[in-house]
């Protein structure tokens, strides 16, 4: 369990994290989303006690991290890939960290095996790829068999097989009753991994709760309709107060009426329909919509187009 309470962090005159309050519960994977610069990494560093909050507090399993007698058993973190001296082997890196908490060499070999680094564990880590660095970071996070695991962008640099592996690992950890907080910018990955979602933008909390509710709440219900009599249909639906936008000569998107209503209207008027498709917004669309005002670094036209929620399929 992670409890974040009115947490703020100021760097100079920039408020990186602004009165964040949320709880990460055990037993599920919680996704931590936000545009670049939203304050995700800063928040995670404060959870780990690496950065001191300007105000507010964080507790891990009921206490600030620094007050735990067996810190690695309470929380394990991957905050940056390749956080290892290039001249040291993965084995010695993990062995040293384990020693500080009285964890034996047996456990070190176990986590090395778990992340699939057995073959290279004795080699100097300087030659590690980004993916191997991520695996080592995950091994570090799991070293103390922690009740809480937090991972910052764990799938960065992993191949598809590695991404799948992380997904199953995270779900497995949550299923064992652990608290799992994972940040990522890969929405599709979050959509299939996380059950809960915390979304922040410009350091502020935008949404916290179930992922399904998040999508439902932040998406507009849109129905795509294809009909040879699209002009007639448009008039009917506009008269019912719906918003209609033309997509192709015979295709319209309808907002404000659900699919059964549209079908019934069409049947009453004898309008032929070729398609009637309710569009569920994706997590990505929901995310774009909710964060559009809090994107820190706008790109060129492509990015601002996306940030306006203009993504269509």
């Amino acid at each position: 369990m992670i409890e974040v309470n009115s947490l703020s962090k100021r760097y100079g005159d920039k408020l990186a994290v602004d009165s964040l309050t949320f709880t990460v519960r055990p037993g599920v994977v919680t996704g931590f989303l936000g545009p670049n610069g939203a304050g995700k990494s800063t928040t995670m560093r404060m959870i780990m006690g690496l950065d001191r909050p300007t105000s507010g507090s964080v507790t891990v399993n009921g206490r600030p991290h620094a007050q735990h007698v067996a810190p690695l058993h309470e929380i394990g973190a991957l905050l940056e890939a390749k956080s290892i001296h290039p001249g040291r082997s993965a084995y010695h890196h993990l062995r040293a960290l384990a020693a500080s908490n009285g964890i034996g060499a047996e456990r070190v070999l176990e986590v090395i095996d778990l992340v699939g680094l057995s073959e290279v564990a004795r080699k100097r880590a300087g030659a590690f790829s980004l993916g191997m660095g991520q695996r080592l970071g995950i091994a570090t996070a799991l070293l103390g068999d922690p009740k809480v695991v937090i991972l910052d962008e764990p799938v960065n640099g992993l191949d598809p097989e590695g991404v799948l592996w992380i997904r199953n690992l995270l779900k497995g950890l949550a299923a064992q009753g652990r608290t799992v907080l994972v940040s990522s910018h890969l929405m599709s990955e979050m959509a299939v991994t996380a059950e809960d979602l915390i979304v922040i933008g410009r350091g502020r909390l935008l949404s916290a709760g179930r992922i399904g509710e998040f999508i439902a709440r932040s998406s507009s219900r849109r129905v795509r309709v294809r009909s040879p009599q699209v002009a007639r249909l448009r008039e009917l639906l506009l008269a019912d107060g719906a918003t209609v936008s033309g997509i192709e000569p015979d295709v319209i998107d309808v907002e404000g009426l659900d699919a059964p209503k549209i079908g019934e209207r069409a049947a009453d008027a004898g309008v032929v329909l070729h398609e009637l498709v309710p569009e569920e917004a994706s997590l990505e669309e929901a995310f774009m919509r909710i964060t559009k005002d809090s994107v820190e670094y706008h790109g060129g036209s492509g990015a601002s187009f996306a940030a306006k929620g203009g993504v269509r399929r």
Partner: peptide, 27 residues
């Protein structure tokens, strides 16, 4: 690979000699 190989641990806590052991290994 599964997470089933995770073992339960107890008695692990930080002490100064253990932190020195960590630094000794690093050194």
């Amino acid at each position: 690979m599964s997470t089933a190989t995770l073992t339960q641990m107890s008695g692990s806590r930080v002490t100064l000699p253990r932190v020195m052991h960590m630094e000794w290994i690093k050194f």
